[in-house]
Design a protein around this nucleic acid. Structure first.
Lengths: 118, 118
DNA sequence: CAGGATCCAAGCAGATACTG
DNA sequence: CAGTATCTGCTTGGATCCTG
């Protein structure tokens, strides 16, 4: 809704980056290793091309990930985190910590029907 | 799209909580103090009732915020963070840290047309 | 005051088909 | 292989009206 820097000043800054399901998922997948487009897509449970591309471009704009194109015969494009992106470690780490200590209580749609795995 | 616990195990757990613009904003507003419905709404730049209520309910389900209703003549409802919610401090802190050290580079829709404020 | 109920509009994600 | 283009449908957010 495009709030122009009112209220919480810098909150709306990181909201753009963190306030997105896909962004968080992509970043966590690129955490350990550099991945090719297809490989990343596969790991993300076969998310469709348009969706993943849109978010990859977005993260690229924010200089959080880097896109390297190799001019080879079978085209190869690899995505990896930039330094800026790696600086997110504490954030992802804190999130992971919190979720480990505070497992979700309910399941949004299917009211906690025994889904206590992971 | 309801991915059932594939790929990154615990990632999809916190994505539900953090992967939302409004959740992050609400949490950051309730950070310092308990707020009444109207006050919270006002601080969120006049976000409309339905939207804020939806997210407040969601955060309540996740036991991140608490909703206290005072049976007074002019109804009063106050929202505050629970212990579980306060445990998010490191996460929000890390986000804030990151965004301070890594200011956004561009403006999403309006291609950086001089909007370098904040 | 703090919403619930509706309806509508915009944004997002998915499917499909097509290229360098 | 790694996308782009397009169309469609669900999900969100917003506006408005109404109520305990």
């Amino acid at each position: 809704m495009k709030s122009e820097k009112e209220s919480k000043c810098n909150v709306d800054e990181y909201v753009e980056v963190f306030g997105s399901k896909w962004n968080l998922i992509i970043i966590s997948h690129l955490w350990e290793n550099t991945l090719r487009y297809t490989e990343l897509q596969k790991r993300m449970n076969g998310i469709n091309a348009k969706t993943i591309t849109t978010h990859l471009r977005k993260l690229e704009e924010h200089a959080i990930i880097e896109r390297k194109v190799y001019a080879e015969v079978p085209p190869r494009v690899e995505y990896s985190l930039t330094e800026r992106g790696k600086a997110l470690l504490p954030v992802l780490g804190a999130m992971s910590e919190w979720s480990k200590k505070n497992p979700l209580l309910k399941m949004t749609d299917s009211e906690a029907n025994g889904k206590t795995e992971i």
